[in-house]
Amino acid sequence: MAETNSRMETILKAEKLTKDYPVLKGLIIPKEIGRVKAVNDISFEIQSGETLGVIGESGCGKTTLARIVMGLEDVSSGSVSFMGKTIKKGMSKDLRRHIQMIFQDPYSSLDPRMSVRRILEEPLRIHCKMTKDERLDRVLPLLEQVGLPAESLERYPHEFSGGQRQRIGIARALILEPELIVCDEPVSALDVSVQAQILNLLRSLQKEKHLSYLFVSHDMSVIRHISDRILVMYLGQMMELADKRTLFETPAHPYTKALMKAVPVPDPEIKDQCHVLKGEIPSPVDVPSGCPFCTRCPKSMGICSQSRPEVNEIEDGHFVACHLYNKEEAK
């Protein structure tokens, strides 16, 4: 999708993002005993109108990454910028309105004491000087676009089902007409049939409004459906980054391959499903030295536990961090 787009330009640029948190011990006088690198040296770009999918298992830092892009967390090192302006915690309102977020849980992300009208008008009150009627003129067509009846305006979140609430959440994110939307697991709390409705809605809105998404999920098939390019993360580090077709047809990193094999497919004819990867994800406090995946990797070599693999571009736009693809050793 991104290639066919003539208006392609980089709107978000992240360079060597690193975020670490202190690990504290002791109840009364907490002492720092170490640091967790939730996000470790990650670089990527998002073009206008494209979806970058971020996939990984729990503790891989995908939510932290989303929060950094939203300006809800400051980076420890590295930088992230939107159209050339740096994103940080205290960034200006003018910058913030261009990046909005859709959350995972449609139950806790809407204020139960606000009517839908207030929920949707609140961003306008904060960011725009508008009269009551002007605000309503913005809210009403948007409600229709996300598939909610106009009567919803005066109703409260508890009167809606999970799927409808997620539609309210989407409308709230869209009301300021942002360029980039950060979606943190927006469909994982929903049933399959509702999930399909929301995914279709997100895609049609993207086409209509030329939006860019940073789409975070743990579900491989959802990511495949929605993304143009995909970033695979493991324990805070980037394992692989490629466009969708390349990643699914010729995955390079052993972790990406394992992740794909582990997903059960709705087809009982496929034998040997749930290909089992040994061991569990190590604690992020105690990341293995060298490649973070070396303890579970079926192709682990001596070097893997000693040094961290560099990110290599093995073909155009296909980045892999694995010693198997190291340029010198490739021969």
């Binding site: 582990a262 059960p264 749930c274 089992v276 990867l277 994800i281």
Partner: peptide, 11 residues
């Protein structure tokens, strides 16, 4: 559970 762990439990 995560997918890789899910696969182990199903197995």
């Amino acid at each position: 559970l995560d997918v890789t762990v899910q696969a182990q439990i199903l197995e």
